[in-house]
Design a protein around this nucleic acid. Structure first.
Lengths: 336, 336
DNA sequence: CAATTTTGCTTAATCGATTAAACTCTCAAA
DNA sequence: TTTGAGAGTTTAATCGATTAAGCAAAATTG
């Protein structure tokens, strides 16, 4: 790789010290009383040699890297990919670069990623925390590393976060189904201690109770570790029994997809034989024969707010901001 | 942010020079004849203080960053998100971190991203080159920066690349439709000088010619700049006229989605009234009422090969490897 | 026992940019 | 003529890790 032009090359060519070059190129020309002639010469030479500051050297000296570490569950998942894109845009606009990693809901992968990013001196983190990573996050907070959690948070940890109001989201969705005349409603969720999942389940349960429903209804929880095929089999098993089931609510987009796959396999027609509410959205929701009613997350706000809050943290602001954004219930054919 | 432990902290505590610490922690203990006692002390102290090398400092000194710059068209697009995930996995396995950016098929964004990544001293690039970026890529090649193109390449540029055999892909798809009895087949593509698009169109045309078909058939090309809505309107306009159209081939997954949206709007039934072949895949293809026949790219191979080739380049290998991977025609309901 | 080799460690330069502090002029005021 | 104040620039330390070169003491050799 051809050697890049350094500040030394410029100073040599102009016949001044590197200090002067640095002052001029960083706009400290006035403060440092650099003569107009020399300043212009430096600028011209920098241009001529196509000088680009070495960010690594600058980072070492300045102690910041203008880099944000983004850790999501899986960048290939529609929801996280969309989010990553929005975060990327917001970060780039502010002069930051994003390095990313997928933790696969695995605490060990999460730990490795966090450490790798710390070694690389990221200025801050945006993290979708996996199950079992409470201590990792607590460690970051204790170390004073700027961090914003997204999509989920730990109630006993005083961190910034930007999340959906998950309780409201599934409460609304369940109420909507009840209003559509459903009584036996099952929620399909992940087995998790994470707050977002707990809230989604709680929202469902409270909505059911609010209408004095709950007898035959329930929550199915499957482990994150299940493959798509395993999830489908599990859901299939459960659905088969409930011949008098009126509706299903799925707690994530992957669960939604697994679910409608099952229903297709069992030949159950949506919305005639069963009504469906999905979570998060995705192309498949739109192109399904019966476009799905789903709980939409305000992705743009989730992404931009998380970046904005993180940047203010990195700039030294100390305020803990915790946002629970309002969900949007997108009513379509699958609950008609 | 709490100050991190440096090599100096260890050397101070053990009472030796920083050099010795560096030698030991980098495994040059034998070569440098460090006494076993001191070596152990250094290791213990490093452990005790939880020392993590500052990668920025190391990068500056070593002249590499163990970072790969990944530039795709849009990380939110299913195809690129999948690819990004595979690249991430392969890179992490080899000890590299990925920084990414979306160029939106825009040469200016691409230029900005390339320069940002160069400033950050990435060790190499994996790029999905946008229209009009030939010179940017040529510049990188001339500068000796390790680079692997992916999904597309420039025929007059001697770079490594990993692509689909696009000609074969659409040739196969078109032949498949012909075998299914279609005669009037239209391809919906993007207006582009990029080779992957040209090859997809060429494959279609040659397949048509191979069966002496071509009279009423043709290619629709729409600009990348079209929004989803604009694309749909444009496609709708064209489809309406061809009441005797037998089949449509779409050249990308986004075009496929726009296309089936139109067909739905026009109330045209797939595959009874028209047959459809999509490109790239995506959830929507699977969950559509008539699961789409589509040209599947060997994503895993695309991703891992691009990383492997890039790493060998970064390690000094000079061989130019150009791969045109075999497509997989996934035949399903939409062409039955 | 002097000469040489080996052992075990330190010094100091380096990567490229930043920046506090010092230094040398010139010009003006006392 | 001395003093002081700017103006304009350089010196040198620094960020943290790496590594070639050097040095002193111990061990080995002839």
């Amino acid at each position: 790789m051809a050697k890049r032009v350094s500040i030394k090359d410029i100073s040599d060519k102009v016949g001044v010290s590197t200090a002067l070059v640095s002052y001029v190129l960083n706009g400290h020309e006035k403060k440092m009383r650099v003569s107009a002639l020399i300043a212009q010469k430096i600028r011209d030479t920098a241009e001529e040699l196509n000088y680009k500051p070495n960010q690594i050297a600058r980072s070492l000296r300045r102690g910041n890297t203008k880099t944000i570490g983004l850790i999501v569950a899986d960048i290939a998942n529609h929801f996280f990919a969309q989010l990553a894109r929005i975060i990327e845009n917001a970060a780039v606009k502010k002069g930051y670069t994003v390095i990313f990693g997928s933790a696969d809901e695995d605490e060990y992968k999460s730990d490795t990623l966090i450490n790798t990013f710390l070694d690389r001196q990221v200025d801050g983190f945006i993290i979708v925390p996996s199950e079992g990573t409470r201590d990792q996050i607590a460690y970051l907070v204790k170390s004073g590393v700027p961090i914003v959690l997204i999509d989920r948070y730990f109630p006993d940890l005083n961190t910034c976060y930007v999340c959906l109001d998950n309780f409201q989201a599934s409460f609304d969705a369940t109420r909507h189904l009840i209003n559509q005349g459903c009584k036996n409603i099952t929620m399909v969720a992940y087995e998790s201690t994470l707050i977002h999942m707990a809230d989604r389940i709680r929202g469902y349960k409270e909505a059911m109770l609010s209408d004095n429903l709950n007898g035959d209804s329930g929550v199915i929880e499957l482990p994150y570790s299940y493959s798509k095929k395993e999830s489908e089999l599990y859901i299939e098993e459960t659905i088969k029994d409930f011949s008098n089931l009126h509706a299903l609510i799925f707690a994530t987009n992957s669960l939604t997809l697994a679910g409608i796959n099952c229903l297709n396999k069992l030949g159950i027609k949506i919305p005639d034989q069963i009504k469906i509410v999905g979570f998060d959205g995705g192309d498949a929701f739109d192109y399904f024969y019966s476009p799905l009613t789903f709980i939409e997350q305000p992705l743009l706000e989730l992404g931009t707010q998380s970046v904005n809050i993180l940047i203010s943290l990195m700039e030294g602001v100390n305020e803990i901001i915790q946002l629970n954004l309002k969900p949007i219930l997108n009513v379509r054919n699958s609950t008609m």
